[in-house]
């Protein structure tokens, strides 16, 4: 049970976004641009940035959802495990290691990002836009994680829920689901 009365029975962030369409609209628009818009970072790379921040914030709902999305985009459980626990040996490019490290610093505090973190990313070929997007994705998930956990939202245990959600995020992205059926289809998982 969430700490506030919602107008729906949807879990995690989905219930919060349906409950308040006024603030949900810009949050969804921002997420769609950052994670699905035209970019030199792949969708999987951007989902990895969302996942590492959610994992570090210990937000179970967001970590499960975005980890499932990484898997749906072709990632492996081993990739996720390395990104969480042994980033330097993760099977990602040197550029992605540097950007994931920047995201980890952002998770702690904006000021924790130091010139040497940026220098490493630039040396590995990261553009200003890629650095900008990595910082903003990490910052955005510091919002999401706090919104989801700060209001005590319901977090399903069933892995099938996250697979279904990930499949929607891969196919349709982050815009509001267009019909009632699609919006309510995820509310009955335990």
């Amino acid at each position: 049970m969430a700490y506030i009365q919602l107008n729906n029975k949807l879990p995690g962030i989905t219930g919060l976004l349906e409950n308040r369409l006024d603030t949900a609209a810009p949050i969804r628009a921002l997420t769609q641009i950052l994670l699905r818009g035209e970019n030199t970072l792949t969708e999987m790379e951007r989902e990895l940035l969302a996942t590492i921040v959610s994992h570090k914030n210990q937000c179970r709902y967001c970590t499960n959802a975005h980890a499932a999305t990484v898997l749906a985009l072709g990632g492996t459980p081993e990739l996720l495990d390395k990104v969480y626990h042994d980033l330097e040996n993760a099977p990602v490019s040197e550029k992605m290691k540097a950007l994931l490290e920047i995201a980890s610093q952002v998770q702690e505090n904006g000021k924790a990002v130091r010139p040497e973190h940026i220098a490493r990313a630039k040396k590995a070929g990261a553009s200003d836009r890629e650095i900008h997007d990595s910082v903003l994705i990490a910052a955005l998930f510091c919002l999401y994680n706090r919104y989801v956990d700060g209001l005590g939202t319901y977090c399903p245990q069933d892995p099938a829920y996250y697979q279904k959600l990930a499949s929607r995020l891969v196919t349709h992205g982050y815009d509001r689901p267009k019909n009632e059926m699609a919006r309510q289809g995820e509310e009955n998982f335990k």
Partner: peptide
Amino acid sequence: VLIAASFSMFNRYVDGLN
């Protein structure tokens, strides 16, 4: 909660890019 969460984003965006 959403204002506090949003400023946890805005603050990191502003300082994370120095």
